[in-house]
Design a protein around this nucleic acid. Sequence first.
RNA 1: CGGGGCGUAGCGCAGCCCGGUAGCGCGCCUGCUUUGGGAGCAGGAUGUCGGAGGUUCAAAUCCUCUCGCCCCGACCA
Length: 573
Amino acid sequence: MKTSQLLIPTLREEPGEAEIVSHKLMLRAGLIRKVAAGIYTYLPLGLRVIRKVEQIIREEMNRAGAQELLMPLASPAELWKETGRWDFYGKELLRFKDRHERDFCLGPTHEEIITDLFRREVKSYRQLPLNFYQIQTKFRDEIRPRFGLMRGREFLMKDAYSFDRDEAGARLNYQKMYDAYHRIFTRCGLTFRAVEADTGLIGGTSSHEFMVLADTGEETVLYSDQGTFAANVERAEVMPPEQPENDPMKPMRSVPTPNCRTIEEVTTFLKVPANRLVKTLLYSTGKETVAVLVRGDHAVNEIKLKKVLGVSEIELAGPATVEKVTSAPLGFAGPVGLKGIRIFADHAIPALRNVVVGGNQLDTHLIDANWQRDFSADQVLDLRNAQAGDPSPRKDGILKVAKGIEVGHVFMLGTKYSQAMKATFLDPQGKECLAVMGCYGIGVGRTAASSIEQNHDERGIIWPYAIAPFQVHLLPVSQSEKTAGATTRLYNDLLAAGFEVLWDDREDRAGVKFNDADLIGAPFQVVVGDKGLADGVVEVKVRRSGIKSRVTPSDIIPYLRKLSAEADSAPAV
RNA sequence: CGGGGCGUAGCGCAGCCCGGUAGCGCGCCUGCUUUGGGAGCAGGAUGUCGGAGGUUCAAAUCCUCUCGCCCCGACCA
């Protein structure tokens, strides 16, 4: 295509609204434009990338035995009420009423819709297994959309739903999807890792997230340095300490700690490391207030806590509650003598000896407090975030930390939805059975954005061959008849050879074209000008390496074929 | 929802503190020259200063309210 026929509004300057590199480059290279917070128009170039990713997804989903369909964006409240998610999903679910005052929502995911389809249309075990997928716009009214396509409110997602006769079949489908995801992200040229994950609002029994490793990722991943263990921090289990400390217990005493409210203030003032402190955090569930004890250098994992408490919402208690429960202002809560609320201790706590805790009194802490002797808890369990240096829960090394972008998520759902919506089939004995389900998502736009995070330099995007909007950027840099003629012939030859070519036919200077080409990031640039033509050659520049070669027009097709074969077989990291 | 910040030309920003009727760079349009890494010269167009209300002789500037956007947190495939 010719540049003059496409809207490619490249920007010289960095847009003020963008923070991370993929967002900046998507705006600068003219891929997307914002319409509202978290809502974007895909411009021609951006759409081409999206379509490439979709195509790869389609091929791999079809290969894995899934079938494509398309469900509606709007769905009636009744289906959501059946599973309870009309209430449970919260404000992220964008609701509205139609002209008849009937409740609807914009689909943030489609378990209800597909399960409804299944129960209406599928009756027999003979029809199973089934796996349906769609690539469709989702809407989630995110609290804080950010980073362009990384976290939009409206976004493209591939979602798939499998139905099986039993657990074993479901596991097989899960594995097929898991393998398909590996192929998809590999083909997209991404460096990624599958990690164990929490199931969140989708629910179900187990899940894996596919994480693109990038410093700008919003997720924290822990992985063992020697083994195969890898998990989202939300999920990563923490082993209890192997051996408790056994220093002799010293007598507990009270010390003044004026204005020392935070861990940092207390450790600095008392000159002790944070791991000698026990933090007492008060959480409100709406129904009750509970105390959570974790070591000073550990962080409470609120997902683990919610599961223990069996609630979906918790928040740190406000100053008024803290004062009511501890009879001290915020910052001095401690477990010694704490009464009237349930106390949960992380399992690192009982192993400690002679620790510092809050004194439940203004400007006061207790030192040399000891488990059992001075304080205890109603339950002791894993309540904290794993962190770098912890032993792997699979006993296969020490944990390390990385940041990741969640581009895909596969879930074993079990019968959560089939049960709630009575999605059953008849087995060979004529008995009614619940379908065992799985669901599998891929963020299409996020995958494209992740690719930019991993493939760019200071000049712009460096697209992996498989998802580049165009493979060849044809750049005539002289105004002569000779160059025009050679460019036209090359363009036609390249198209005939099957390349997707962007022909910069603008009357701009060479520098402008070179800079835009580097920004847009097609894998290969073909420069045609009087200088080279005088020697009978054009110039081929490989965007990633920057290597330029002089090639005769008759050799260009085989030359680019060779380069693109290499690009396909070895997606760069 | 809490904290912070920003809304001035298509984009990036100055002007606001200290009120006097809006400016810079890039882009855009016209002409000439130029033409292999973001050209030069000359000329030109473009603003309800996010919106509403108030104070004032006078408001981009001060006050109140409101809307939008960005960042941090909480939240989230």
